[in-house]
Design a protein around this nucleic acid. Sequence first.
DNA 1: CCCACGTGAGACACGATTGTCTCACTCTGG
DNA 2: CCAGAGTGAGACAATCGTGTCTCACGTGGG
Lengths: 183, 183
Amino acid sequence: MALDRDHVLRSAAALLTRKSTATMDEVAKAAGISRATLHRHFAGRDALVRALEALGIAECEAALERARPEEGSATDAVRRLVREIQPAAGLLAFLYGESQLWEGDRQNAGWQRLDTRIGALFQRGQQSGEFRIDLTPVWLTEALYGLTASCAWATLDGRVAARDFPTMVAELLLGGALRREES
Amino acid sequence: MALDRDHVLRSAAALLTRKSTATMDEVAKAAGISRATLHRHFAGRDALVRALEALGIAECEAALERARPEEGSATDAVRRLVREIQPAAGLLAFLYGESQLWEGDRQNAGWQRLDTRIGALFQRGQQSGEFRIDLTPVWLTEALYGLTASCAWATLDGRVAARDFPTMVAELLLGGALRREES
DNA sequence: CCCACGTGAGACACGATTGTCTCACTCTGG
DNA sequence: CCAGAGTGAGACAATCGTGTCTCACGTGGG
């Protein structure tokens, strides 16, 4: 039962990542169950999206946990974070484009928790002198989400290889397009 | 009449940037016209979105034109491009999230034209030694779109000041988060 | 003045999606 | 074997957005 629910959620995430307007019927078929059973798990489309949001937040927090953001240099911590977040990138991209989640004043507090922790990582990098201080931690956090979603979509379209995901996102976010003189 | 159409288009762009699921009725009200008149300008929602797509492409091409991508260093050209693209950033963010435009095989050829020209700019930077070669021009182009959309949304929410848009996008895209030793 | 045109307002039907319900089937444990 | 829980299939009404239509209004030119 709990396993069923998780399986349904993951199928829905995979489908909605590709086709964000998918019908409840399509979601059910993708999970290999009937629409009736889908409704037994999730009261409605809204409830499903909320559950996906909670899953996305949980996966991001788990990725952040695994990345050990307090450990070692902030640079390496960001690289670890990007690597750990890749499995959730598709789901994240879907949620990122689901404006329904952002317009109300009742948005999930989990995002703020995440923003705070990721922002703190960038701030730590600034304080240690690793990161430049003219880009705010808030913007760097936003850019991390944005680049993650962009690369997830580009991967789906085949414009970027999945194995290059960590490099592409982390290297652009950290080093930018400019070539370094040193190193 | 032609002016009316342009005014309607711009109102729709402004509204749909904030609320991508806005109704035809809401779009009409935002433009100060009735739904009937809106339908006289655009056969349906699809036609409206397509017209917005064409407008977005045209604005991007105009921005690219103004930025003179062949002139001077590629770095400065990218900075100019980001600056010129800012007025269209909201519209671009809306289109970027409109998956309807990408899933079919009948996507507007304008995007490919743009991708090619912007990709060429990044390639020029790589050939001149300004840009690193381990990030593909395709990914850099994608990242430019992604960061533009992210910053547009962050600006709407007040997380980033509009006046900082060019700096935030261009500096992150070009230099990344890492602090430079030299310069 | 009068007519033609564009417009706003509203009615209407249609399609798509949703949420709820019922019923028959299957499997599992006692 | 049997009872009960869970499921799939389908019917059903309700809702919402859409596309089309009609009609009345007013405005500007002939």
